[in-house]
Nucleic acid binder design. Sequence first.
RNA 1: CGGGGUAUAGCGUAGUCCGGUUAGCGCGCCUGCUUUGGGAGCAGGAGGUCGCAGGUUCGAAUCCUGCUACCCCGACCA
Length: 490
Amino acid sequence: MAKNFPTRADNYAQWYNELVIKADLAENSAVRGCMVIKPYGYAIWESMQAILDKKFKDTGHVNAYFPLFIPKSFFSKEAAHVEGFAKECAVVTHYRLKNDENGEGVVVDPDAKLEEELIVRPTSETIIWDTYKKWIQSYRDLPLLINQWANVVRWEMRTRLFLRTAEFLWQEGHTAHETKEEALVETRKILDVYADFAEKYMAIPVHKGTKSPNERFAGALETFCIEALMQDGKALQAGTSHFLGQNFAKAFDVKFLSKENKLEYVWATSWGVSTRLMGALIMTHSDDHGLVLPPKLAPTQVVIIPIYRKAEQLEQISETANKIKEELQAKGISVKFDDRDTYKPGWKFNEYEFKGVPVRFALGARDIENGTIEIARRDTLEKEIIPIDQAVDKAASLLEEIQENLYKKALKFREENTFKVDSWEEFKVQIEKGGFILAHWDGTAETEEKIKTETKATIRAIPMDGIMEEGSCVYSGKASNQRVLFARAY
RNA sequence: CGGGGUAUAGCGUAGUCCGGUUAGCGCGCCUGCUUUGGGAGCAGGAGGUCGCAGGUUCGAAUCCUGCUACCCCGACCA
C-alpha cells in the first residue's frame, strides 16, 4: 500500500494532499482556495469542537454569534490591526445581480452599489468590540467571556487543504476584563487549555511560548502560542492566545465605571484555533498507509469486519459481532460493524487504515469455531488473535495504549529533531535538515529579519518553559539570556 | 503579481517533437457467473465537444495565435 503514497523524501506536500483526499477528509472546492470538508473529516472536527467547547464552558465562557460582515470603517479604528489584515480581505461592494442585457447570464447590478463596503470577517475583533461598547458600562458587567464558533475568510495567495484555506472554520474567544492582570491570567489560561487539548487529545506535543514582536497578532501587546513540529521537519503554529491590552478598548471606546467610580478602559484578550488543527493532526501521526487518528478524536474508534462465505455464516458472525459492539458501546466506545457485502474484507482493511480507525477486529467462521477474534492496532499495524471473551477489555485498553503511544512517538520525534545551535555556520547547515533549533537571539527585529531572509527560518516561540541561560546571539553575537525556538514553518 | 509547468472519459494517463484509419491503456462504474482471513477472477458492456476561441491544411489531440483554468517555486499568511 505504501506505493500509493509518494515517500516523504519525494514530496511531502503531495503525500499530504493525497492523504487528505484518500482518507476522505476533504477536497478542493470550485471556489479558489476553499475546501469541501467531507463527512468523515467534519466528524473529526466535531470531536475537536465538542472537547474544546466543554473546556471553554468549564472555564466560565459562553458562546455567542456575531455577523459575518464587518463595515469597512470598523477596520480603520485600530491602526495595527488594519495593517495586518488589509491585504487579505474579501470585500462586498454590491447587493444585487441582474440579467445581462446581452443575454449572457447574470451581471452585478451597478445600481446596487453599497454605500459602505462590507468586509467578510478575517477575524471578529472589530465587530465584537463595537458591540461590547454597548454591553459594558460598569465593573459589574465584567469580565465578559465570550466565544464564537464561526468561519472566517482570508484571501491567501497560496492555499493548502486544512493548513491554509481561503475560508476556514475556527473558534475565536473575545474577553474583556477590569484589570491588566486579570486579562493576562485569561490569556495564559486559554493557552493552557490549548496545550492540554493538543497533548492529551490530539497527542501532539507542543511548545508554549510568546511570539516575537514581528510575529505578533495585529493589534496585540503579546501573543502566546503553541508550536508543533510536523514529520517533515517544519513547524506549525497550532493555536494562539493574545493579550490585547487596551488597544481595542481605546479604538472602540469601551469604558467602564470602576468600584472607585472612575471611568476606565477595559483590558482585552482574544484567542483561537482553527481547522488547521486537522492539518496538524494529519501531519503529525499519519504514515504511508494513511491517516492515524488518536482514539480520543476518532469518530469511529473500533471497526468490526466480518469474514464469511455464505449468508448463514454472516448471520452467525453478526450475532457475535453485534454483542461485542453493544458491550463496547456500553463502555462509551464508538463502534462500527461493517457488514456491507459490497466490499471484500481486504478492501475494508485498507479503507479503515486510510481512515485511521485505531482498532480493528476481524471475525470469521474460523474464529466462531475457535472462540477467538483477530484484533489489529492502527498505530503499529500489529495483529493478534485473542480469546473472544477478552475482546472488549482488550479493545478498551488498546485504545488507551494507542493514545499514549502516539503522543510518545511524536514527542520522541520532536526531541530527536530539536537542536541546540551556537554558531551561525552551524545554524545555516542545521536549518536545511529541518526541525527546531534552540539558539540565542539578541532580541532585535533586525536580526530576526536577517535570519529569516537568509534561511527562511522564523522565531516560532520564545519558550515559556525554557531555561534562562546567558549566551550570545547566534547571528549578531550580542548578549542574550534565553534560547528561542527557530524553525521553518507552514 | 513575477518565474516554470500542465490541460485527452469520474480519476490517473499514452499519443503531441515528426499532422493521416474508428484517440489507446489502467483504476473506477454497469451486467452475469465464480469468489470472500489483506484492495478477487473471468466474460460482456457503458462512458470522449482531446480546456476554450480563432487560424493554417485535402485532413488538427498533434502546427500557429489569443484566452482561461489548475499545479509547482517566490512575495503574503492561522
